[in-house]
């Protein structure tokens, strides 16, 4: 009996030690660039819905040309989401972008991968096919992807799309900030370069945030007093300026906590140093040993003695 108690004690101690420690470690941002790195600011009050960004994206990524030409406004009759053939889409919402633009009839909101600072998809990916580049772009490596689509489940913005009709090597497709993998270059978005009204501004995220807040300060009557993406799900690299509440414009209301934080603290909290499994193993091993002994089955004592000794360093 005393032996069991010792087993139990050691295992519980290990559990305690492991649970108390990991929170701080887990909270460290694991993305390469942290909140620094690149970003892109979308000023929806400037967007005129010309869909040049869609066109530029289509060309840069060599996507199939759509049946409806990019100059067509017909597409605005439905709310679209990014697909495997279009990494960015512009949606139109009735009513002007801002109170000081009464003559405008619609607000246009571009949708693409938000490039979260703490991306759920990257945390979710089983093999690390999705990852955060040095500049913060969330990029995809189809070579190791197994096609489980957990990233589609994970994304809070409903962005990644999948090639369902590709039988052998379907890929997850999404905006990668125009990262050029073959050339080894980082983010350089074609949509931002193509935007005629410079509603899209590409640059350092920190400076873009300053710029966004400066615009809000300069024209408080035009903008909602918040930058969408500054805090949502731990911050995103694509930032939006709105003249109307974001919830009216098809963007989800999201908490400030990044989804990976809870899941990773569970993962690493319970399983760090394999503490809980080893403790459980030890406990169950002790129970088994005791029961076997009770039944009088011949079992060398070394069996029980070696196991815990091996596992607890």
């Amino acid at each position: 009996m005393s032996f069991d108690r010792r087993c139990f004690l050691t295992s519980s101690l290990t559990v305690l030690a492991s649970v108390s420690k990991p929170q701080a470690a887990a909270n460290e941002a694991k993305s390469g660039a942290g909140p620094g790195g690149v970003g892109c600011l979308i000023d929806t009050t400037l967007c005129i819905g010309c869909r040049q960004c869609e066109d530029a994206c289509n060309r840069r990524n060599s996507l199939p040309r759509p049946v409806t030409p990019f100059r067509s406004k017909e597409v605005f009759s439905t709310v679209r989401r990014p697909t495997s053939a279009a990494f960015t889409v512009v949606n139109a919402y009735a009513d002007p972008p801002s109170a000081d633009q009464p003559r405008r009839r619609e607000t246009f909101v571009k949708k693409q991968c938000m490039h979260c600072i703490d991306p759920a998809c990257v945390s979710a990916c089983i093999v690390g096919a999705l990852s955060t580049a040095e500049d913060g772009a969330v990029v995809y490596n189809s070579d190791i992807c197994i096609g489980c689509r957990y990233c589609l489940i994970a994304c809070p913005f409903q962005i990644p799309a999948y090639e369902y009709h590709e039988p052998v090597s379907p890929r997850v497709r999404k905006c990668e900030f125009c990262t050029d993998l073959s050339a080894g270059f980082g983010a350089n978005p074609a949509c931002a370069a193509a935007c005629p009204t410079e509603a899209l501004t590409f640059g350092s995220r920190i400076r873009l945030l300053e710029m966004a807040h400066a615009r809000i300060r300069q024209r408080p009557e035009r903008y909602e007093d918040s930058v969408y993406g500054e805090f949502e799900v731990g911050g995103t690299r694509w930032l939006y300026l709105f003249g109307r509440p974001a919830s009216e414009l098809g963007l989800p209301s999201l908490p400030e906590a990044a989804p990976p934080r809870l899941i990773e603290s569970i993962q690493h909290g319970i399983f760090r140093y394999a503490a809980v499994p080893i403790a459980l193993y030890t406990l169950l091993g002790c129970v088994m040993l005791r029961n076997r002994r009770r039944r009088g089955l011949q079992e060398p004592a070394s069996d029980a003695a070696t196991k815990p000794a091996v596992h607890i360093e």
């Binding site: 093999v127 955060t132 500049d135 990029v139 490596n141 690493h268 399983f271 140093y273 394999a274």
Partner: peptide, 28 residues
């Protein structure tokens, strides 16, 4: 168990081998 430890330590350190390729990308 050791493998398991290594995986978790790797993940916690933020230097996951599987995603190191992305770090080689140069900022534009």
């Amino acid at each position: 168990v050791i493998l398991y430890l290594a995986v978790h330590e790797e993940a916690l350190s933020g230097r996951i081998g599987a995603v190191q390729w992305a770090k080689t990308l140069q900022p534009f």
